[in-house]
Amino acid sequence: MPLGPDGFDRLEAVGRLLAALHGREVPPDTRLTPQQLARARRMLQAADGHHNGATQKEIAEVILDTGRLTRDEWQASSARHAVMGLLRGARAMIAGGYRKLLRHRRRS
């Protein structure tokens, strides 16, 4: 196993894998905060909806529970910008940014 700067992350992942394989309690995965995990989930849901032909407004109605908005309400809604951000983040993840999920954040 390579033990470069990511070695600690790899060792932690191996520990979780071994615990799962041997029926022991699996230690929590500390790479993402609950907020980061929730955002990643919403990004994937938004990307999936977009891929299946949903409009940004429809995505907001489902993911952000905005209810049905009129065209004018939608144009002025903060949910519109939130969905655009989710889709932008999803595109970055799909383009390879998902690899960052595998590592702990490190100070430079």
Rank of each mutant, 00 (worst) to 15 (best):
D65N: 10
L101W: 07
W74Q: 04
R10D: 10
G89F: 02
I94K: 12
L18A: 15
R107N: 06
L11E: 13
P2M: 12
A13S: 06
R16D: 05
A95P: 01
R10G: 05
Q36A: 10
L87D: 04
Q35C: 07
A38Q: 08
R24K: 14
E12T: 02
A82Y: 06
S78N: 13
P27M: 01
K57W: 11
A20S: 13
G85A: 06
E12D: 14
K100Y: 13
P34F: 09
V14P: 01
D48M: 11
E61P: 01
L21F: 13
A13K: 02
P2T: 07
L37P: 03
D72Q: 14
H50W: 15
H50C: 11
R103V: 03
R107E: 10
L69Q: 12
R88A: 08
L44W: 02
E12Q: 04
I63R: 08
L21H: 13
E58I: 10
M93R: 06
Q75D: 10
A79E: 05
L101H: 11
L11R: 13
G85Q: 02
G97V: 13
I59M: 12
P27V: 00
K100F: 14
A95H: 11
R16C: 00
L11K: 09
D29H: 05
R10T: 06
D9R: 05
A13C: 07
A82N: 11
L3H: 05
E58Q: 15
A60K: 02
H22Q: 14
R106G: 09
L102K: 10
R31F: 00
H51C: 12
R41A: 10
L3P: 05
R10V: 04
A40R: 12
A95C: 06
A92F: 03
K100P: 11
M84K: 06
P27N: 00
V62M: 14
I59F: 12
T70V: 13
L69P: 02
P34T: 11
K57E: 15
H104D: 07
M43V: 00
V83M: 02
D9P: 01
D6Y: 04
P27D: 03
T70P: 07
R39M: 10
G67M: 03
V26H: 01
Y98Q: 15
Q36V: 00
M93T: 01
G4I: 08
R24N: 14
R39S: 02
L18R: 09
G85R: 05
M1A: 14
